[in-house]
């Protein structure tokens, strides 16, 4: 994870520098806030990568000389089909569209999203 940590730390550093510079030369507060938000996002990923690396050590994919035979086991279990994504998307669409079309639609959307989120729990292995 070290290269990833460095990459994102670099991103965070860049936005700190540019954000502070912008502030010092008299930039308006919105821009400063947006740039520092970018710092935060870069820093967030860097922090996560750093923490992961600290807990799990070096991975095969960080080593120059690793090959497939260096890792065992499953990469992950992948569902190939699920009804949840499309129904959730319908629900979220209803919620947002309801802002313009009427609260009945938003309420319907919330109901769909809630029910699908519940079903998702049972969905874990499909």
């Amino acid at each position: 994870m070290k290269p990833e940590t460095l990459l994102w730390a670099g991103v965070g550093t860049y936005f700190t520098v540019i954000g502070v510079t912008y502030m010092l030369v008299g930039g308006e507060p919105i821009g400063v806030a947006l740039l520092l938000m970018a710092t935060a996002i870069g820093g967030l990923i860097a922090g996560w990568a750093w923490d992961w690396g600290r807990k799990h050590g070096t991975r095969a994919e960080d080593r120059n000389d690793a090959d497939v035979t260096d890792v065992q086991g499953v990469v992950g279990v992948y569902s190939t089909a699920s009804l949840r994504p499309i129904t959730m998307a319908i629900g979220v669409t209803a919620i947002v569209l309801g802002l313009a079309l009427g609260s009945w639609m938003t309420i319907g959307g919330v109901a769909i999203v809630a029910s699908q989120a519940l079903l998702l729990v049972y969905d874990a292995d499909t």
């Binding site: 990469v75 569902s79 994504p85 499309i86 959730m88 998307a89 669409t93």
Partner: peptide, 22 residues
Amino acid sequence: PDLAFPRLNAFSYWLYVFGGLI
């Protein structure tokens, strides 16, 4: 073998489709 979050991926796709239709 796939993206990290396959179902999230499908969810994104459908949001895009519905957004476009709207």
